[in-house]
Write a protein that binds this DNA or RNA. Structure first.
Lengths: 190, 190
DNA sequence: GTCTATAACTTGATAGAC
DNA sequence: GTCTATCAAGTTATAGAC
């Protein structure tokens, strides 16, 4: 680990710990052990435990919002937008499954004002997807089923990848992107 | 609450607490308050906190396994079996969203030997579904995409219902069963 | 920046009176 | 079966020496 990289090392270890045991069951003592420090020394690098969770969750949330903006500014075709979102979800779940898991499963332990910020970012992201799906049905590109069902089914289809992506596993990213997107869009397309 | 129903009352309150705050963040003191007892009095009805989680998670897991056996013994058509599984998932998520959430999100806080039992039940359930999906592709009823992708996408498609099903919401169960099943099977069917 | 020591508090669970 | 009182262990975080 490079000099000055201790803070990053702490964040990475915290994310791994939160994923494996959950936020509440992860102690600062344990975290300290993982980065070879005494517990009190952690506080020279971070201000408290909550900050660790907030950084991870809000960082991921901002990444999704930014990606969504980027996709929508570059592309106008509903199916192509959904395809790009799908590819991005698979990619993030494979490239950083630890952060993806903490983001998905531990955000509820955020405290205010981080919780409010997180919910706003998620709402921003989700409302864009809702809009795309509603437009898709209007344009006759997606099936005419309840738009909430389409939206929720679409998003939940990615919720297994980060859990399934265990360290030892060999994954063909491009094949997985292609297959998952194929199955999902097959269900939604008219 | 009926006489003798205190134990059941405790379990219901515990499930609600585990869902809302997570297992680790739920304290026996809080649970005691919810059922109008002093913390120590809880131990006249249950032996410890872990037992509460185990009962909820293993109870749900057994229910799914039993239902799966029942479906497979009564029906031989792959698409009809998948339809019935889908309907059952939607039904349980709507009828008892609290247990469904604890089962899905808190099982990782089970300790041995409960954790092993839970994993075995889940494995039994999932291997039956894997088998059905593999058979579906062999028979030419389902698309020829990677069977693991089909399996995971199928199961994860139900993972939003119990979270979305907030108390105040009005839900048309039959419409939801029909719509969700329609979208999912559309994606899998040849 | 890291350490030792410790404050201030919460946790699950038990003992024993009633 | 419920209570009061309490224990032993664990929690986050801080103070101050080096």
């Amino acid at each position: 680990m490079a000099i000055g990289g201790k803070k990053k090392e702490i964040y990475l270890a915290a994310a791994r710990l939160f994923r494996d045991k959950g936020y509440q069951a992860s102690s600062m003592r344990q975290l300290a052990k993982e980065v070879n420090l005494e517990p009190s020394s952690l506080y020279s690098h971070i201000s408290n435990k909550q900050e660790l969770l907030a950084q991870i969750c809000l960082g991921e949330a901002e990444m999704y919002v930014n990606k969504m903006k980027s996709i929508m500014s570059e592309c106008d075709d509903v199916l192509e937008i959904l395809r790009q979102i799908s590819y991005f979800h698979v990619e993030t779940a494979l490239d950083d499954p630890i952060s993806a898991t903490v983001f998905s499963d531990e955000w509820k332990h955020l405290e205010e004002p981080n919780l409010g910020r997180f919910r706003n970012l998620r709402k921003e992201y989700e409302s864009k997807i809702r809009y795309i799906i509603a437009r898709g049905t209007e344009e006759g590109r997606l099936i005419d089923t309840d738009s909430m069902v389409l939206f929720q089914t679409f998003l939940s289809s990615f919720k297994w990848i980060y859990l399934w992506n265990k360290p030892g596993r060999e994954v063909d990213k491009e094949a997985l992107q292609r297959d998952i997107t194929h199955v999902i869009l097959r269900g939604l397309k008219k």
